[in-house]
Amino acid sequence: MDITQLIKKVTKEIVKFSMSKKNYRSKMLYLIKGFFYLLPLILEENKKGKANTDDELLGDDIYPLF
């Protein structure tokens, strides 16, 4: 997924999540927090390496045969 697509999708999700809150204050609070805190954080984390199948990943270091 390219970055523009990702921003669009995350924005949509943040709006959807915020609008699901009950009162106006909460809606605004989650919108602000979402755009200023979560959006950059998610974009940053997305830059980090994608999952692959090599054995250097956590949970893959199981002793092969007993």
Partner: peptide
Amino acid sequence: IKHIIKRNVNSGFTKKRI
């Protein structure tokens, strides 16, 4: 919330490298 959003946009969770 961050994890819910990430999951919904399907940006994919990456297993942590060690």
